[in-house]
Amino acid sequence: MNGFAGEDLVCERGARIVFTRLRFAVGLGGALVLVGPNGSGKSSLLRTMAGLLAPLAGRLTWDGADVRGDPFAHHQRLRFVAHTDAMKPTLTAIENLRLWAALAVSIDERSTGEGNADTRCRHALAAFGLAALAEVPARYLSAGQRRRLTLARLLLAPSRLWLLDEPRTALDSDGAARLDAAVAAHRQGGGIVVMALHGGPYPDGARFLDLADYRAAATC
């Protein structure tokens, strides 16, 4: 099938099975929302989806093909936003984005989107309402502004799969609205989004994956 899917995933963290026999499937343009209590493995699942964590068992597929067959292709198609912001406080907002823009260029020479790296950085900043702060060093940004800057990384070049770990953390209502708009536009273009969320609003037509359903049985 087309899209992103996981089959019988088992995840182990420090000798503990976090979730087991987990399955999911998202079609093109789809959204998958991960819910579950703290420690249920939402972040671990996102990191597994990104390829940072190898699942103990099971496999991830893209359009039916195992993503481990071509990890670079998988890296090319995904954008990952974790809790950390990957910002250097001494660099300005736009300088922080430039490295990721450069890497996005080398990702896929054909579909880097419109304009050169600098314009793309400015577009991404504008989309999250940071245009006026482009030349401000990141250390002067507030937590919400830093979050916006982190999310702006998503828009540097088109990609197929967004993996977002609680993206609304620290965002105000304007920031959340801009995020929702970005997600909607991404899905409009056939992109897939997987996000861990604590509470709504949820994207239209989203599927839900409750990680509490996949806990390992507590037997010794």
Partner: peptide, 14 residues
């Protein structure tokens, strides 16, 4: 010792 750790973890999270 590894097995004991695993059992303790399971108790904690189970």
């Amino acid at each position: 010792a590894g097995k004991i750790r695993a059992i303790q973890l399971r108790r904690m999270h189970g």
